[in-house]
Amino acid sequence: MIIAIASGKGGTGKTTVAASLAAVWDRPLAIADLDVEAPNLHLFLHPSFSATTAAKMEVPEIDESSCNRCRACVAICQFKAIGLLGDAILTFPEMCHGCGACMAVCPQEAIRSGCRTLGAIGWGHTPEGPFLNGRLSIGEAMSPPLIRLVRRKIGILAQAENRDVILDAPPGVSCPAVNAVMAADVVVLVTEPTPFGLFDLELALDAFQSHDRRLGVVVNRAGIGNHDVYRLCERRKIPILAEIPYQDAIAEAYARGDIIARVHPEIQSRFIKLGQRLRISNNPSRCAPVREAHHA
């Protein structure tokens, strides 16, 4: 099972939930941090990194001598990664999305597959299982190919050893986040019961709801705001999988870099229950919402 932990915006506790869920997971597990712009999960899980590899994507390399300047590649490239300037054929690798269209349309077969580095992949190990993170280079804009790469690597690793996967997705609902949750069986959306949380959760539901994927919500900092988030979930028939109450002690534990499920037995039991609910079944209707009495 692949579980993506996502949120409509950052700072709702997504990484905290990912770390705590990983800490209580009782099946073989692999963990990947796909928040490649701001990878922070390692700060909580403290993996020992054994290797760092360059994360590369495919970009075109044009053999100028076999190119007859027919413009086919220039015309098809939607990202303006190839330009014909007078007689000079130029590539702009930082614009390339790696779609392969130029290579497919070149009648001269003059375009080879080259590569460029987007960032790095850290390969590590935690007591919970193997750990990967993607780290986008500073100033680099192209995060989706790196996200897809890390997602694929962790998928292969998990499949070979029959491990479940926890993915820490990038925050937000745009292209990178969609790329991260794409192959997940379950998406856990972390929100907080405030107007910002409500608005961002609604965006996330619109972005991630799909017939072939289960969705559930974790309400973090429960008790600080109002009940609108619960009403939204009820209206959209989204189960609330767990609530994490707001307590100064939890916020302080998080600020120290502690895994909150390890600090408080009561919080730990909430995460164990969350894990059980995620595993119950692939049938959304059986993924029963948990509503605690004081919100009813």
Binding site: I76, Q78, H97, A101, A104, V105
Partner: peptide
């Protein structure tokens, strides 16, 4: 991503 590869081929 709107790359047009499928459209063209």
């Amino acid at each position: 991503e709107g790359c047009k590869l499928c459209v063209a081929l």
